[in-house]
Amino acid sequence: MAETITPEIFEHLVELAALDLDDEEASYLRRELNGQLKAIHELESIEVAEDIPITSHGVPYSEAISAPLREDVIASCKEADDILAQAPEVEDRLFVVPDIPHEDLS
């Protein structure tokens, strides 16, 4: 696990993350990522026995303390207009977006 984030890996991550970055920002971010990776490498030195399970959150959620599932009922959304009002562009109560990349199969 001694990898560093090379410019090529970085470019791939930026593409996956859908971020438009200028050169100066990209160079700062890559440097910081590699700094953080050094700190993360400290994990390597920790002996973790094979039978140690993962903890995805600290407090165990037994059935006794978990909230029961809510009933599956249809309810109207009172805030629909307020939510639509937040959209950058709406037409006939539909969100408007630019062309979605697609392949023409015909």
Binding site: I5, I9, F10, L13, V14, L16, A17, A18, L19, D20, L21, E25, Y28, L29, E32, L33, Q36, L37, I40
Partner: peptide, 19 residues
Amino acid sequence: RGQGFGPQPKLRILMGMYV
């Protein structure tokens, strides 16, 4: 996303995707 996020969210997204 490039315009809206500052450097800290960008770092977290990139590191999150890497690891």
